[in-house]
């Protein structure tokens, strides 16, 4: 409980004042983190997250996450790729430099199909990767959660719930109580310098 964050003492030189930004609660089992997530969800929090060393089945439901928007990004990119291929070949082989290949007319659908297919897949893959980065707001150089030394075990054998202080439902005492009731083994407030 009485954990002091020495990590960012070094940075004190640049600016002075600190303010709390995150409430970090540590759990020691998947069952506990699962039920904690359900409690936080039911309490109506919106700006919070769960950090675990491995995916936990059903956590999306326990956190009340809606379906990912990624599919729509991928679909839009797929359609863009498909149309780009058609447009590109139409322009090149019909408008700009008509060329008869293999005795086929300049605009013949079967010969366009492989290119359209490949560009659809390529754009979809780009959409999936970069869309995922975008939705997760990556890449990101800094996050206050890494001020916590205990958080290093999120990649090993501990499970964490982090709730942002900005969350409209956040109340230092009540939120701490909620997490304690959910059998958190350790709770700490993470502070960050005001820039």
């Amino acid at each position: 409980m009485a954990s002091h964050d020495h990590d960012h003492d070094n940075e004190k030189k640049s600016a002075g004042e600190k303010k709390p930004v995150l409430l970090l609660a540590e759990f020691d089992s998947t069952a506990k983190i699962f039920h904690a997530a359900e409690k936080v969800r039911d309490a109506g929090f919106t700006r919070w997250d769960v950090h675990t060393p491995f995916p936990i089945h059903g956590m999306d439901g326990a956190m009340g996450l809606p379906d990912s928007r990624l599919g729509w990004i991928v679909a839009a990119m797929a359609l863009t790729g498909f149309c780009s291929a058609l447009g590109m070949i139409y322009y090149m082989n019909v408008v700009d430099y008509p060329l008869i290949i293999g005795g086929k007319p300049p605009w013949s659908i079967p010969s366009v199909a492989p290119v359209a297919f490949e560009l659809t897949i390529l754009f979809s893959a780009f959409g999936a990767v970069f869309g995922m980065f975008g939705i997760n707001r990556l890449p990101r150089h800094h996050h206050p959660i890494f001020f916590s030394q205990r958080f290093e075990r999120a990649t090993d054998d501990r499970f964490f719930v982090s709730i942002e202080v900005d969350d409209p439902k956040y109340d230092e005492k009540k939120t701490r109580k909620l997490l304690e009731d959910a059998h958190a083994t350790h709770i700490e407030v993470i502070e960050e310098e005001v820039v």
Partner: peptide
């Protein structure tokens, strides 16, 4: 199915 058609169509 398209692979089959495509090769045959192209070679003609």
């Amino acid at each position: 199915c398209f692979s089959q058609f495509f090769l045959i169509w192209y070679a003609s």
